[in-house]
Design a protein around this nucleic acid. Structure first.
Lengths: 193, 193
DNA sequence: CCCAGTGTACATACCAGTAGGTACAACTGA
DNA sequence: TCAGTTGTACCTACTGGTATGTACACTGGG
């Protein structure tokens, strides 16, 4: 792997583990096995490097999500597959955690990919739900946009609960809970299973 | 206000705004209008001060929540009142944000109040929902513990979405979404309003 | 040669805390 | 009663380390 590549990957890991304010250029260099001069040669500074790292992480997240949404199946099946896909729950969401970083949120350039990722995600899930509703799989009274926001929020909040508890259990429960609620809105009616 | 009091309040504000790693003793002192010696006289260091601040914040959060849960009304009404209560949405949850702070999560003493707060919250909401189910207000097939986790997750995730978007809208939508889903589980059946 | 890529030295500020000292009030014992 | 002691609250100065870069010298491949 090239030096810029190693620097970006190290930054991605550190942003995930420690956030932006908790990540120093020195720590990035050490993890990447690169010298200081090398880092400042390839990137103008910490924000520049962080931007590259954030963009790449956002891109990966989007691709992984789209994989589930584009799969065959009913709307609820696809949303379920997305919610239940394998995740490093205790590490949290690498994009969501950035919303707690004051320096990221204060910089419009760094913040943009975070904003765009969640906007896309909410919109994409809303589309899936609207499609399910139009196909007659889902209750017509259900608001796709609101429900999509709920689904994404359950995910992000599930990470918070799991980290607080030091266990994946609350995450699983939150996901099961919202899927249970959603089941009652399918046109097959309430489930008792 | 006494000096220790001012120090605790400043720490609470800074933990909320910038997190633990983003908050320096110096910043705390300046905001509190206290000198360095003064701070180290009253508190053994940054973790000690943070503990006092976190405990107080957790206590307040719990009291504010209990106020809604103990109010009269159906289970759904009380959960709705809790979810819709006035909040500083864009600032996020002062307790939830701590789960993204590596130094807080790494210290069992600092982490304990965070863990306990969410454990209590999930349990308390589960109790309210179980009560509603026993009273016949809610569908018997609904799992109170799972649904309670979902409710708390929607809240925490709603903050994340709102901060990412720079707008309260996604938070409101997520709350409306989960309440809409919950409505279908009331014994009056599905709503079409 | 030349220049992208890398290494080392230096610069300035901040972090988190320790050391040591001042002001003052309360308490002691002769 | 009153000099002396103790304890509380607070302050400034100092310390070793880190944060975030600049400046510049060097090296090897085209």
């Amino acid at each position: 792997m090239s030096t810029p590549e190693r620097l970006i990957e190290s930054t991605r890991e550190l942003l995930w583990e420690r956030g932006y304010v908790g990540t120093s250029p020195k720590a990035i260099q050490q993890r990447a096995g690169a010298g200081q001069g090398s880092m400042y040669h390839h990137f103008s500074g910490k924000p520049d490097l962080a931007l590259a790292a954030i963009r790449r992480t956002a891109e990966e997240l989007r691709a992984a999500a789209e994989e589930r949404f584009a799969a065959p199946g009913t709307a609820v099946e696809r949303v379920t597959a997305y919610l239940r896909r394998e995740r490093e729950v205790l590490k949290g969401c690498p994009i969501g955690r950035l919303t707690q970083d004051p320096d990221v949120m204060a910089d419009p350039v760094l913040r943009a990919p975070v904003d765009e990722t969640f906007a896309w995600l909410r919109g994409r899930i809303a589309d899936v739900l609207a499609e399910g509703r139009d196909r007659g799989e889902l209750d017509a009274g259900l608001d796709p946009a609101d429900t999509a926001s709920t689904v994404v929020a359950v995910l992000q909040g599930g990470y918070v609960l799991a980290r607080a508890a030091g266990s994946e259990e609350p995450f699983r429960r939150a996901v099961d809970g919202v899927l249970g609620l959603l089941a009652a809105h399918t046109t097959t009616g309430r489930r008792t299973d």
